[in-house]
Amino acid sequence: MMDADTMVLPRLGDAVVEDPWGEDRPRRAAARAATAARRWRIAAWLLPAALTGALGAARITASAPSAGELATRRAATSSWPGIGAALTGDEVALGPYHLLLRAWAALFGAADLALRVPSLLAMIGAAALVGALAARIATPAAGLAGGAIFAVLPTSIRYAQEAQPYALAVFAAVLATWLLVPALDRPGPRRLVPYAGAVLLLGLCQPVALLLLAGHGWIVLAFRRRVAVRWLAAVVLGLIPVAALLASGLRDGGHLASGVRPGAAVLAATPGDLFGVAALGGVLAGLALFSLPLRYAAAICTAWALVPALGLLALAQAAPVWSAANLLFTVPAWAVLGGVALSRARVAGAVAVLALVALLAVAAQLPG
């Protein structure tokens, strides 16, 4: 065979080198950075959710049912005509939750574990949204730290293991705030309608938690006044069904929420009741100070943490509604502020504070 008829395959080493001058190097570096940032944003919500799930599932059936859980079980095992009575009378605030648990029990049974699973799932979702919210308004590092703080708090674990509506209200509060941020930046129906849905969910889970809207309203008036009318329209859309339900129940003698009138001793005990131990409240309050100044991002959670508490305090002067459980929906705000503060610290300092929070949380749950 002649040389001209012979096919010569080039060796790999003879291949022309692409981009010999390194012109694509910045683009490849940007692509790697974007991929890494995307992974950190995923970790910011995924890891807190996994941690909450693990801590909440551990010993979920160890405690005996509380009085509130016994009421939930009675509702979950009653007949459908009987459960309808929960929408009026003294149970007005618990009626929608009891209806939900009645449907849940029809599918999964009314054992302690089955009735507590919705609360566990709600807290897992809340932890994921805490991480996602902190990552959205600050950095993925803030999301990881804030989500971890929320996950290890004794009250997060406790209410993840109780068949009561508080965990669902926490989830709805975080969801509403998470949806508020993009809705205020681009206030179209595509974003405001889901926000209205979250407001509706919050009101059905825990009517007194609608005090969150006072915090949202402060943010709108302080930073996004031009969208106030559209925000208010979304709020009204979410509140109409809740208002109709509450009006019917209150007219029949029901009450908005259970609690006490806030004396000095009650107020002093609130941080310990709200966070599981008073020292944790002190740590989170200190971290919140380091998340200032009150720029838009940090102010969202500052208003969420403080304005509803002040509103409940004012409301409690007229009716006995003050309790830590009625303020549980503000706990994620403190966790986000703590995460934002830790994201600004050095790694060693942030790890030390997270270890302190975890240590205090574990100590609070040890039998005394």
Rank of each mutant, 00 (worst) to 15 (best):
Q317D: 01
A30Y: 00
V92L: 14
V152F: 04
A127V: 08
I124F: 12
S79N: 11
L200Q: 04
R226F: 01
D5M: 08
I149H: 06
W104L: 13
L168M: 14
G203L: 04
R346V: 11
R261P: 02
A363G: 08
A145I: 09
L175K: 05
A57T: 03
R346P: 09
A110H: 14
V92N: 05
R74D: 08
R41N: 14
I42H: 04
A64Q: 12
D112P: 05
A268M: 06
G109N: 03
A303E: 09
G56A: 06
T88P: 00
P81W: 10
A142Q: 11
V117I: 15
A163D: 12
M2L: 12
A85G: 12
A64S: 12
I124C: 14
S343C: 07
V16N: 03
D273N: 15
A348N: 08
V242P: 09
V17R: 15
A163K: 08
A138F: 02
G146Q: 07
A364Y: 10
A222V: 09
R102T: 07
A244V: 15
F108E: 08
L94W: 07
A333W: 08
S79F: 11
L129I: 08
A268P: 06
L201R: 03
W21V: 06
A279F: 09
A279R: 14
L356C: 13
R39I: 07
T61F: 00
P367I: 09
P189E: 04
A318D: 06
A358E: 00
L310F: 13
A145M: 11
L168F: 12
T155S: 15
L327P: 03
A111Y: 00
G82I: 04
V16Q: 14
A86S: 15
A196Y: 04
A309T: 09
D24Y: 08
A57N: 00
A37I: 01
A163H: 10
T270H: 06
L274E: 07
R251T: 15
P154R: 07
T35L: 15
Y166Q: 09
A183M: 03
Q164I: 06
G147K: 06
A264T: 12
P332K: 10
G143H: 11
G282L: 15
L100N: 00
A127K: 10
G338L: 03
L12E: 07
A198I: 01
L101W: 05
A305E: 02
V117N: 01
R226G: 10
A151K: 05
A93F: 09
L289F: 11
L232P: 07
A122P: 13
L366K: 04
